Amino acid sequence: MSVIEWLLSSDPAIRWQAMRDLSLAPAAEVAAERAKIATHGWGATLLAAQSEDGTWHGDPRFPEWPTLRTLLLLHDMGLDPASEQARRAVGRVRENVKWLMNITQDELPKDEDISWWHKPFFAGEVEPCINGRVVTVGAYFEVDMHPVVDRLLGEQMADGGWNCDQEIGSTRGSFHTTINVLEGLLEFERATGGSPAVKAARVRGQEYLLSRQLFKRLATGEPIEHDRKGGPVWTQFSYPAGWRYDILRGLDYLRHAGVTPDSRMAEA
């Protein structure tokens, strides 16, 4: 069995993308296969696991986190946002899920920004690495994400990147945060047509990656194996990536964004 045959024998979430990208199947056949995500295989299993309150369980204290991760999986699978199943699932999230929804006011930390306590899920919270991913799923599933996007535009740093540690004094962008925001802005542009301001911010952000050849220090040109917080090396590709950056994720973003290849991508 060839690799393409193996992919085509997989779940509908994989098969429709292999049909589109590798076997060049007719558009009608690709669309029919994609539609099965809502009713067959992994997609149907994830949709069926949603609770009536809109969350996906896995963390009883913070159910908003498995909810975000599940919506990202459904986005990556290609669940049709116009399908009845997607609208029902996203509607439950919009109506019920909030940040820190199972945390009482007495349990909140006294020395942190907790302005996002009990805010609606699609209103985002305070960290751009999280809000970028909220924009990705919100824009894809046809939720108005303009307020969160406006916040992200205001948080872009002087070097073109974004950093979740900005609020505690960081003055430089982060590969991790930047890729999360870039993916969100790109999805927002696809869904809404974007604006000159959004496109300009996204281009500045992708230049942050390109000027560092996707994995090097700007000052020295040395490869960055992984960030100061540890975690997997950037040449170790994994899925789902969560909030973490790796070289393949950077390249995948550039491909989706239609960036013309240049020499700065070559080594990556």
Results as ranks from 00 to 15, higher is better:
residue 231 G to F: 08
residue 237 F to V: 15
residue 220 T to R: 01
residue 227 D to C: 15
residue 252 D to F: 01
residue 223 P to Q: 10
residue 231 G to N: 09
residue 230 G to F: 09
residue 232 P to L: 05
residue 243 W to N: 11
residue 248 L to C: 03
residue 242 G to P: 04
residue 250 G to I: 03
residue 221 G to L: 03
residue 242 G to D: 06
residue 216 K to F: 00
residue 222 E to Y: 03
residue 259 V to N: 03
residue 243 W to R: 11
residue 247 I to S: 01
residue 261 P to G: 07
residue 237 F to D: 12
residue 226 H to M: 11
residue 217 R to C: 00
residue 234 W to D: 00
residue 228 R to W: 08
residue 241 A to R: 06
residue 248 L to I: 01
residue 253 Y to A: 01
residue 232 P to Q: 03
residue 255 R to A: 06
residue 240 P to S: 13
residue 255 R to D: 03
residue 220 T to H: 02
residue 257 A to F: 06
residue 261 P to I: 06
residue 242 G to Q: 07
residue 216 K to S: 04
residue 245 Y to L: 08
residue 241 A to D: 14
residue 227 D to R: 12
residue 262 D to S: 11
residue 229 K to C: 10
residue 249 R to K: 15
residue 217 R to D: 00
residue 263 S to K: 07
residue 250 G to E: 04
residue 238 S to G: 10
residue 217 R to S: 01
residue 255 R to G: 02
residue 263 S to W: 06
residue 220 T to P: 02
residue 258 G to N: 13
residue 248 L to V: 00
residue 221 G to P: 06
residue 256 H to W: 14
residue 216 K to Y: 02
residue 224 I to W: 01
residue 259 V to W: 08
residue 258 G to W: 13
residue 229 K to N: 14
residue 262 D to H: 09
residue 221 G to A: 06
residue 244 R to M: 10
residue 231 G to M: 09
residue 237 F to P: 05
